[in-house]
């Protein structure tokens, strides 16, 4: 009986996750265009993919976006967590205000930031109205800088969540360790740099994995803010995959890009899960 109850879910996952991965993997070796085809073409699509200008833009953008997104979110998250941990009055009221963006859809976030950063009506206009007539902020319409506006919005959405992860880490640190260091005459700055932040290693690792994985998957926010534009300036792997598969009728290349995305995520997640499982086996 028990196994019978589990079976439907397991079969669903087996087919819809693992079966589909195999299917998409197979398609990446075929000449599929509008519809799936089963004619084997070897590694042609992989060669084609890396020759695509759009794909190199997407990979470059992912590198810029991923790096900035992870670093800035971690920095803001850690800063807020440390500050909130100083026996702050009203912590209970502040925490939810930092975290609520996480409950929003990226499409909502994208809409808000798209118009707020729009040079015609948003921030640029506001600052000019305040009297700084020559102020300009047209990044979202500028090929060179558009990707950074997506970083701004993405950081806004997730940095509060990173704060929560670090705060949980901080609350788990034994006060005896801190007191011992204080007796040794450590200043607060030294305490954080030498003792507390090193103890937060697990939280850093979780934050890195979660943020990296979100960066690779980012799709909705890009679509809502710039639709991959101006031109293809904010192309990301996820938008590339979608447009090549469903609008440009190059399903083989689209499948190939999906396989690369899976490999990127796997290289992040699999070691992490193994470490977690092994760590637990050690009786943690």
């Amino acid at each position: 009986m028990p196994r019978l109850v589990l079976a439907p879910s397991f079969i669903l996952i087996l087919i819809f996750v693992y079966g589909f991965i195999v299917f998409t993997g197979y398609l990446s070796f075929t000449d599929s265009r509008i519809l799936p085809s089963f004619d084997w073409v070897g590694l042609t699509n992989y060669a084609k993919l890396w020759q695509q200008r759009n794909w190199s833009i997407a990979i470059k953008n992912l590198a810029i976006f991923g790096l900035l997104y992870i670093v800035i979110c971690t920095a803001i998250g850690l800063l807020l967590a440390i500050l909130l941990d100083q026996k702050i009055r009203g912590e209970g009221a502040l925490r939810p205000l930092y975290l609520y963006p996480m409950a929003l859809s990226f499409i909502v976030t994208g809409t808000a930031w798209k118009w707020f950063l729009d040079p015609g009506i948003g921030l640029e206009q506001v600052v000019q109205n305040w009297g700084w007539e020559s102020f300009q902020f047209g990044w979202i319409k500028d090929r060179r800088f558009a990707i950074y506006t997506i970083v701004i919005a993405a950081v806004w959405q997730t940095s509060g969540f990173v704060m929560a992860m670090f705060l949980a880490g901080l609350r788990g640190i034994d006060n005896e360790i801190i007191k011992a260091a204080q007796i040794d005459g450590a200043s607060n700055v030294q305490l954080y740099r030498r003792v507390i932040i090193p103890l937060l290693r697990p939280a850093f690792l979780s934050a890195f994995v979660v943020l990296g994985h979100m960066a690779i998957k980012s799709y909705d926010l890009v679509i809502a803010m710039t639709s991959g534009g101006p031109g293809r300036a904010t192309e990301m792997p996820a938008t590339f995959m979608y447009s090549f598969t469903f609008t440009r009728n190059q399903m083989g290349v689209g499948a190939t890009s999906a396989v690369i995305m899976l490999m990127l995520i796997a290289s992040l997640i699999v070691p992490y899960i193994f470490a977690e499982v092994r760590g637990r086996g050690d009786g943690r």
């Binding site: 079966g19 998409t24 998957k217 979608y242 399903m251 999906a258 899976l262 699999v270 899960i273």
Partner: peptide, 20 residues
Amino acid sequence: VFGMMLLACFIPFQIVLIPM
């Protein structure tokens, strides 16, 4: 079984769009 279900949480959905 659990490990396989756990890993399924993290796949990029692009990998299942076409077969789906």
